[in-house]
């Protein structure tokens, strides 16, 4: 099995199997280019200037976990029921991160184009958002309310049905 070196934005190298690295479509296409240019023998170094070291480490955890025996290369997963359940549990534990980490992770997943991870992260963020009031969401994610007062009032009025339970949420 061939190994690949992924270099994060702060210059740290991570050595992984090409299978795991190919879960990222961005890396996969870069690898194909590199192979065509430099031939089969030379070491493959992929610089990833948009991903910091700790995030890359986290992403690779996912890639390695999801390319263990039983998973085939094309990304279409033919796995036994037990293995699938194990992965689900693993994914759930994997998502136990701070909001900040999650944010960096979703950015990295988008940049590296790892479909499974992106889906997982989006679901994780959606879980954080679900059932929260707009103020709460703003606080939680550090967003700025850039509406004009009248504009916000208008949106609130047209979506009143969704806001009725807001007071109940605030009580909790």
């Amino acid at each position: 099995m061939r190994t690949v070196i992924l270099r994060s934005s702060d210059g740290a190298d991570h050595i992984v199997s090409s299978e795991a690295a190919s879960l990222s479509r961005t890396v996969q296409s870069l690898l194909e280019e590199l192979e065509a240019k430099e031939g089969e023998e030379s070491p493959l170094i992929v610089p990833l200037p948009n991903v910091c070291d700790c995030t890359l480490r986290k992403v690779l955890q996912y890639c390695i976990q999801h390319t263990e025996p039983g998973t085939n290369l094309t990304g279409r997963i033919h796995v036994s029921e037990t293995r699938r359940r194990d992965l689900e549990v693993w994914d759930r534990n994997y998502m136990l991160v701070s909001t900040d980490e999650l944010y960096h992770l979703v950015m990295a997943a988008h940049y590296l184009n790892v479909p499974g991870l992106l889906e997982l992260c989006c679901e994780g963020i959606a879980n954080l958002i679900r059932g929260k009031s707009p103020q709460h969401v703003r606080q939680h994610f550090g967003l700025v309310n850039n509406f004009e007062k009248a504009e916000e009032e208008d949106i609130r009025r047209t979506n009143l049905w969704a806001l009725v339970d807001e007071k109940e949420l605030a009580k909790k």
């Binding site: 959606a126 969704a162 807001e166």
Partner: peptide
């Protein structure tokens, strides 16, 4: 990415989240 995130929450959540920014 935002579209992907929003597609995971319910209809009421989406309507409410319009007021965020």
């Amino acid at each position: 990415v935002l579209i992907n995130i929003f597609s995971h929450v319910g209809p009421a959540d989406v309507a409410r989240l319009r007021a965020v920014c």
